[in-house]
Simulated assay, not measured.
Amino acid sequence: MRAPAAPWFDLDETVEISWTAPRGGATVNGEPLPDPMDPPAWQSPHAPRTTETPPWPGDYRALVEANSRDGDETEHYSITVWPAPRAPQVIHKRTDRLGHRLRGEPEPDRPTPPWAHHRWVENSDLAQAGTITVVTGTIREHLLAALGISPPPVDPAERERIRDETDHSVLIPWIALAEVVDGVFALWEDNGHRCADPALLARLSEHGRAASTFWTVDALTTLSFAERGRALLSFEPHSVPDSCPDEVRALLDGLDITDSRHRKAKGLTAVERFTGHGYAPADHAAVLATAAFHRVGEWCRSKAVDRVGDNGPRE
C-alpha cells in the first residue's frame, strides 16, 4: 500500500496519524470480514476487501477523513492506511462544528448554504441521474414546438413497454413537463439530456429564459443557460470558464462549485437564480402528476456518451 497522493480536501475534517498494529487484519468494528469464498447473500463474491488492514503487524500511517457530521446530512468517513515509520500527527483540515466542540474549541460560524433547499434531490428518485430544465415566458404550444414533439404523449405504463421492447444500444429520451406557475415550465428527463444542448435550450428560451442542469451515474454534470433565443453558456461546473458572461458569473456567487459536494443542489440553485424558479418537491410532484411522457427522438447510446455523457440508461 502507498501513501495517498493528497488528502481529499472536499471533506470537513482530515488528520494524519501514526498507528502501530499489534497484529494484522484489523477492521473498524473489530470483527473479521466475511469469508470471500462464502459471502453473505447481500455481498457480491467479487467485492474488494478494502475495509481490512494488511495481514501483518507493524507501524502504519492513517489518513482519517470525516464529512457532514453536523447533523444536517448523511455522515461519511474514510480511513486510508499504509506502512510508514512513526511520525507526528498532521492536521490537514478541521472545519466542522462537531470537531471543534469535541476539541473544546469555539465552533465556527457555518451559515445555512444557499443551496440547502435543493438538497432534497440527493435523497429522491432523482438522486442517481436526471436533467432538470426551467423555461420562462412561454406557453405549452411554443414549448412543444421548440422540443420538436409531434406524437401524443404516453402514460408511464406505455413508456415502460416501449423501453422493454427497444434495443438497449439506443437511448430514447423522454421528457415530462408541467406548468408550475403561469408562464414557467419545469421539464424532467430521467434518461437523457436533450435540454443540455445549447441549440435546443436557445430555442426554448425564445420568449424568456431557460436554464438546465443534468447529472449522471458517472458523476458528470453540466449547467446550461440561454436567454431570448441566445445560448449564453454550457459547461461542466468544476470551475467557472473564462468565457462565462457576467450575468451568469454573478449567479454562481456563493455556490462554491469547485467543491464537488452537493453539486446537484448547487446546479438547481443556479437554475433558480437565472430563471426565478427552482425545482422543489412540489414541482416534481406536478410533473409526475401529468402522467405524460413525450418521446423526443433517439440516437445511438455511444454517440450520446461521446457528446455529453450518459444518464443511465435505465431501461
Score class of each variant (00 low, 15 high):
229 G>I: 06
39 P>N: 06
217 V>T: 14
287 V>N: 05
207 H>A: 12
125 D>T: 11
138 T>N: 09
198 P>K: 07
60 Y>T: 10
41 A>Y: 04
231 A>W: 02
212 S>D: 13
23 R>T: 08
52 E>I: 15
105 E>T: 03
131 T>N: 14
51 T>F: 12
193 H>Q: 10
20 T>V: 11
305 V>M: 05
235 F>N: 05
43 Q>S: 08
20 T>M: 07
33 L>N: 10
88 P>W: 02
247 E>M: 04
61 R>C: 08
127 A>L: 03
105 E>Q: 15
33 L>T: 11
81 V>Y: 02
80 T>G: 00
126 L>A: 14
20 T>R: 13
7 P>M: 10
134 V>E: 04
71 G>W: 10
216 T>L: 02
190 D>E: 12
137 G>E: 05
46 H>F: 13
34 P>N: 07
251 L>H: 01
212 S>Y: 01
293 F>D: 13
300 C>V: 06
249 R>H: 07
137 G>S: 04
106 P>M: 07
78 S>L: 14
62 A>G: 03
247 E>L: 10
132 I>S: 03
239 S>P: 00
177 L>I: 07
67 N>F: 00
125 D>R: 10
292 A>R: 15
263 R>H: 09
262 H>E: 09
257 I>L: 15
294 H>P: 02
139 I>H: 14
213 T>E: 05
154 V>P: 01
244 C>F: 06
127 A>K: 10
192 G>T: 03
57 P>V: 08
278 G>N: 04
47 A>D: 06
235 F>H: 11
17 I>F: 08
176 A>K: 08
16 E>M: 04
25 G>K: 03
235 F>D: 06
241 P>E: 09
35 D>A: 05
278 G>R: 03
284 H>Y: 15
50 T>S: 13
203 R>T: 05
248 V>Y: 09
17 I>Y: 03
83 P>A: 10
306 D>L: 14
279 Y>W: 12
142 H>R: 14
119 R>K: 13
279 Y>E: 01
142 H>I: 02
52 E>D: 03
137 G>P: 03
54 P>Q: 07
22 P>F: 04
106 P>N: 07
93 K>A: 10
310 D>S: 13
165 E>S: 13
